[in-house]
Every structure is written in structure tokens, then in C-alpha cells.
Simulated scan of single mutants.
Amino acid sequence: MTAAPDADAGQAPPGRRRRRPGRPRWPRAALAVLVLLLLAIGTDAAVLTGRVGEVAVDLSADDSDGRTWVLVGLDSRAALPDGADVGDFGTPEDVPGSRADVVVVVHRTDAGTTLLSVPRDVVAGTGRLALSWLDGPAATVAALCELGIPADHLVTVDLAGFAALVDAVGGVEVDVPAPVRDRPAGLLVEHAGRRTVDGATALALVRSRHPEHRVAGTWTPAPADPDGRATTAAAVLTGLVSQVRGSAAVPWRLQSVAWTASGALAVDPGTSVPDLVDLARADVGTVEVLPAGDPLGGTLARLPTDATAAAVAAAGLSCRR
């Protein structure tokens, strides 16, 4: 996509009805998908270990006060889905580097597991968290540390792998109340109703920034909604969870899902496949969204507040690096 880094919010979810205010569900759905993938990988760890990528960062893990996992969904033009039109996404030269599109923190202690979703636009370090990955994973780890969040283990998932996974499970079912398109995202769904979409379409729905709905035969910009992308991601990821769970009953499909997942994941050098399986066994509960201030005038940037620090402390997190 050719939009500038800041032009990635503010539209209603493509093809989705406006939801009532409340806690976003997509981080929990995203984590549920990852947990299921990790369990799938654990079914054939010896074969799949070599396919899991490595993130070049030294975390010097300290599990003495609990184990903290940072899960990052990456957006990079260098990792487009198979068959994707570069004209829809933009080239790595048009939009260089990777961005931390989704950040979920899992903190495990003997007392239980706490989960936090960190807004991609919170200011940490020299700028927005999402953009910190442009300077490498160590910069993102350092930015999180400034918020009081340590990283003992790091797991990343690229969006090309997400699309491949959707195809591996046979597509996902979504509800499209109105025809929707987003030309820069390569999105076009011409008919309303429930339908099964492939990986490329699912990814386009999740990444759509400026959707248009067809109203009385005319394509019209969707109403502005800062939570639009999150709401759409919730719907797509919930469908993916359902499909992955269904795959568990079909051995050949489970193996296909595990193979695809292992090729989509990357971890820090200190994290092993048994560690991933251990994470998969975590008691996943409610994901709390880390509070942050309102967007600064004319930008997406949101400053951390006293409530941000209080939520980090309440989760039992402390960065002493």
C-alpha cells in the first residue's frame, strides 16, 4: 500500500456493522489463533523446528519474576501473500521496512496469566510503537521497556503467513452487510451476505484503511471509525479460530496448518519450540487493552498517561533492563 505511515486509521470497518462501544475482542482472537498454531506445531516439533524463523535480538531472558512474552504481528511489503498484486500493496521501496501492527504481551507467573494489548500508536521512545520496528526488533523491545514492559521471549508473525494460513484451513467465513471495496488494499467484495473468503481477501479486509461501501449504486467512503480495523480483524480472526479448531479433527489438515504456521513464525534465539508449546498451554483469559491518551491533534500518536503506568504495574510488569 502506498499510504503514508500515519494514514492508517479513521475509517469504519470494511463491510462490517458498527459495533457498540466496549473492549476490543481482536487481541484475544489473535492470541487464540497463535495458541492453536503453537499447539499444531507441537504435534511434529522435530520436523517443524527448522522452519521457525529467528529474530535477531538478544533478550537476556529473566524469568525470575515470571515469564513475559511479546507477540508481534508484522506488516511488511517484503512479505506479501503469494499472488498478491504489488500495485495493491506497494513495493518495499515505496513503503520500506516492517511495522509492528499488533503487539500483545503475555505475562505468566505462578499466580496466573495476564494479557495486555499495547496500542500500536502509543508513543514509546522516539515515536509511535508501530514504527519502532523500522529500527529493528531491539528498538521495539526498548520502546516497550520505556513503558515498563519487559520482553523475555519474542514471537513474530508476518501477514503473508496469515494469508497462507487462511488458505491452509480452507478459507474463513465473514459477514459482509454491504458491498465493500478499498482499491489501495486490493479489496473488492461486490455482494453482501455471509461468505467464505480466501487468504488474500481476508488479509485485504484486515488491512483496509479507507473502505468504501456501495450505497444506491454509488461507492461512498465509509463513516470514520478509529476502531474500524480492529473490529474487522476481530471478525476475520474469530472465523480463523473456528477453522483452526475444526482442523484438529482432520489429521492431514492439522499437519498442513502446522507446516504453514511454522513457516510464518519467527522467535528470538533464546526461544525454542518447547517454549512455544509451553506458551500454548497458558491459561488464556481476558486481554486488557493498555490505556493511552487521545490522539494528538492531527496525528495518530497517543501519549502514555498515569493510567498507562498503573495498568502496567497492575499486570505485575516491570522493566529493569
Score class of each variant (00 low, 15 high):
R245Y: 10
L254D: 09
P251S: 09
G285Y: 11
A248W: 15
R281W: 13
S262F: 12
P274Q: 04
V236A: 04
P274S: 11
T231W: 05
A234C: 00
G217M: 09
R194K: 12
A235L: 07
T271A: 10
A204C: 02
D278C: 03
L254V: 13
T238Y: 08
W259N: 15
D268F: 11
T260I: 04
A233K: 01
T271W: 06
D278T: 13
A233E: 05
D283V: 06
A248Y: 15
L205Q: 04
W259G: 14
L205M: 07
P211E: 03
L240F: 08
P223I: 04
D283Q: 07
S242D: 14
A248E: 15
D198F: 04
Q255M: 13
A282G: 14
D283M: 02
D268Q: 10
A204R: 01
A233I: 00
G239Q: 05
T260R: 08
G217P: 04
A230M: 12
T260C: 10
A280N: 08
A248Q: 14
A222S: 09
A266C: 01
A200T: 12
P223K: 05
G217K: 06
T231C: 01
P274M: 06
A266R: 03
A230G: 15
L240H: 12
R194P: 08
D227R: 14
G193P: 10
R253I: 02
V215K: 00
L240C: 10
A233C: 01
R229Q: 11
R209S: 02
L203V: 06
A200L: 14
V267C: 07
H213A: 06
L276T: 05
A192Y: 01
A233R: 01
A192S: 07
A264S: 15
A258T: 06
P221K: 06
A222D: 09
V250G: 00
D225I: 03
L237E: 07
V206R: 00
H191R: 13
G217S: 04
T220W: 10
T238M: 10
A192H: 01
V250Q: 04
G263M: 05
D283S: 11
V197C: 14
V197W: 13
L240I: 09
L205S: 04
R229K: 07
W252S: 10
W259F: 15
P211I: 00
G246A: 12
E212D: 02
T196N: 12
T231M: 02
A264N: 13
S262W: 12
L265N: 08
P274V: 05
P226N: 05
L279Q: 09
H210M: 03
D268W: 11
T201I: 12
W219I: 04
D198R: 08
H210G: 07
H210E: 07
R207I: 00
S272W: 09
V284A: 15
L276H: 14
A282N: 13
P251W: 09
A233D: 02
A266S: 11
L265H: 08
V257N: 05
R214V: 00
T196A: 12
W252N: 00
G285K: 11
R214I: 00
W219Y: 05
L205H: 03
A261C: 14
D283E: 08
V215N: 00
S242R: 14
V215D: 02
L203E: 06
